[in-house]
Nucleic acid binder design. Sequence first.
RNA 1: GCGGGGGUAGCCGAGCUGGACAAAGGCGCAGGACUUAAGAUCCUGUUCCGUAGGGAUACGUGGGUUCGAAUCCCUCCCCCCGCACCA
Length: 931
Amino acid sequence: MTAINFKQIEEKWQRGWADAKAFEAEISSAKKFFFTVPYPYTSGPLHIGHGRTYTLGDIIARFKRLQGYNVLFPMAFHVTGTPILAIADSIARGEEEVVARFKDYIAIYEDADKVDELINSFRSAENVANFFAARISADFKRMGYSIDWRRKFNTTEPMYNKFIEWQFKKLYDKGVIKKGKYPITYSIEDDSAVGEDDIEGGDTEKVAVIEHTAIKFKLADGSCLIAATLRPETIFGVTNLWINPAASYVKLKVGDETWVVSKEAAEKMGYQKDEIAVSDETKGSVFVGKIVKELVCGREVPVLPASFVDEDVGTGVVYSVPAHAPYDYIALEDIKKSGSLELEPIKIIDLEGYELPAKEICERMGIESQMDERLEEATKIIYKDEFYRGVLNEKCGDFADVKIADIKDEVKDWLKRENIADVFYETSRKAVTRGGDKVIVAVLQDQWFIDYTPEWWKELGHKLVEGMTFYPEKYKTYMHDIVDWLAFRPCARKRGLGTQFPFEKGWIIESLSDSTIYMAMYTIAHLLRQLPVDALTEKFFDFVFLGIGDAQELSNELNVAADVLNRIKDEFEYWYPNDLRHTAPPHLSNHLVFFLMHHAAIFPESRWPRAITLNELMIREGKKMSKSKGNVIPLADVSELYGVDLYRLYCAINADFATVVNWREQDTEALRKKLNAVVELFEDSIDAESINEAELTHIDRWLLSRLYRRLRESVELFEAFRIREAGINMIFNAMNDIRYYEQRQDKDRRKRIVRAVIEEWLIVLSPIVPHVCEEIWHKLHESFISVQTLPVLNEAFIDDRVEREEEYLVALISDIKEILKVARLEPTKIYVYTAEDWKWELFRAIQDLPDKDKIREAMKLRKDKSTVEFVKQVMKSKLDYFELGEPEVIEREKKYLAKEFGCEIGLNEEHDPKGKKRFAVPLKPAIFVDG
RNA sequence: GCGGGGGUAGCCGAGCUGGACAAAGGCGCAGGACUUAAGAUCCUGUUCCGUAGGGAUACGUGGGUUCGAAUCCCUCCCCCCGCACCA
């Protein structure tokens, strides 16, 4: 027997499929199945984790093909957005880390001598995108995915731009494209918004926009010192303000008020507020010693100096609550040490376990200096504790006796209403762009949004979700929640690759908003290429997608033949809607919900998506895969390292959709052995002489029954997307059946039995491991297994009786073994006693009765003490009733039993020295061992 | 915080619409078969007790519901994930 060269057959059949155009889908009279997975973003190589989703997708597509569907499984590439641009910019700037990373990426695919030239070309975003798009499509071909590549496109192509414009016009007409204010992370230097990809370390440590409350404290001259805080509820406990004497402060004209904040804060505010004027720069020391009035209770408090105040965080002014803020407490102690100041903390929060929380936490942690880094930690502990467990006390007016967690927002809103406070946005941490410029928060005054809040839209969304199938099912409820939660979403940006926003110059459509109904493009992409871009007008898409307008009129207008227009429309109408979208749960609250909502808004119900399946992610050796950990295996290396079919099998079998797959080297080895065993079994059996029904023995029939049953179950499992169970059934369980058979029979005969089911087996298995199945199939047939339809399984061979007889035998053997083990006997003869007829009769009569009635009914039928004992035994043994000619079965298998135990077997003989016979119940014979 | 998921034998991991569950499968470990040997493969065992097919104890913790709970309800402890404009 020759071992299969996996790599060689992968290439052979992939070429074969491509040459035969096996997966190019055309309109036909057959029932269609339009299947999509998300197009990959082409900013780098894909790894085995990404591969899981695409692989399971391909398995589903292949299975649907077996079911006789005309399957369309297309693919495209996502290019729009900022990351690719950010990468190209970084490389153009010569950022070492990025350059090194992309050199590594190139080296995955290309020879070392080409790397420098290619990395040079990566200064252009387009080249980055094209390079990876080409490599990823090669990867996908190497994974054996059954994709129709003719419909490939990318999201920066002119025809795609036209399509997106159309989509936005439809939404605009519905009145959901709106303008409004919105805080974003922003670079002053670049004069533009910055995303996670633009920020230094943004992928590992996110930068969020945090809303601070900026509270006004009135100086004698009428101007206000503005102190920013995350804990506005503590305003009741303020004892003083802190200011950094060395830092610069400025006056700020805001409306008819004058504010004093740090110079840095003033600059930030310039990006958050309309029309403010800056003047009068001074040092913080100028304010030290002044008295300000807090506007809640009207108390007067002093401004004191503090070195911990950072002019570049918040407003550079902090109000002090020494009872509850460790920083404030320590700073106040310092001041007291050096002077004669009479300030005592004002306690406003009751917290179990503390008298004065800030004081006690510092004492417990041994913190004494303003510069102690542990102050940060102390602050976190107190903040959290007080937030969840703390209650505002009687000093807090209307807010007293309420938990902080429940009152915080109300206090904030009240302060704003009373014009005591304003909003100031700050980044969650200090951050710079990859180019080294400071990241601040800016408030865009005219951001474009999609407004998902209209009632009509929510209703349609829920209706759509309700009518869909989700697997795993739990995601349906979850999706309803997401539809409710979805509100306003910015849909355009100033920067990035993408389609021009049609309603205002200078904006690009944001890259998730341009990926919502793109499945529709697959149906017609290959045909649109033959048309001039100018022809792709709003009316054109209205005609194709919505059936609005007349082909002839449109033909005249666009100068495109009417039959071409009709052909395009037919193609769309044949394939749409999307029957199944397979993806991963992280997409639920963004891409998927937009996908659903936009379909609901734009298309009629008949074009709404039908089903969504989702698989969890993949980790490796128990850890998350990430480029920073360096534990990523590129998809491109799978064939070389493992073999594609092994990888596919692992994805299919290792975990259900809802479970994270753990890629473990040790497990891949175990699975490799298993796959090899299956392949060997097929190869070994394929040439065996066929067997005809008359020749079949009991155990032959048993194996056939098992295998056919497994295949039938597997098909059902596939249909329910339970691919893992289907795979286990056809690989592990079936192999166990065969091993068992080989123990009972000889190997040569096994070959003939396997030969009888081999074609069906291969077909059902082929979605998971298409290459090896194709290889073996071709020893019998010319055609591709990948385009077969499911066999009609020979149900007649699925035989309950045969299987139960075998179960009976297995149970008997295991009982005998148990006895031999416990009694430590070397048997000389084993006596088996089957239940007498009267027991069987009673057994049948009482099997369906509830336990409590069994004895009474049995006694009615047979008045004898032994009846009671027998019924008790039956109840205890919990036997499942079925008819079986016990003596016949044992008689038939006497030889096998004798061989198994190496001694003679006596069946229902008189010899019964220990009186075991009376213990026999139906389906559980009594046993006596001589030895 | 809001929302979601989870804790199962030495390890990974199924089961979780309550009963046949001492709990699938894999790995590991032990013994055996095969082999000159190694590897591969196959068989047996892998909580405790038991000289007759049985019993006891077990599925994070502590309670509860039930004739019966890994599975349902509650307490507590611990772990993981998402929270938006970003692909």
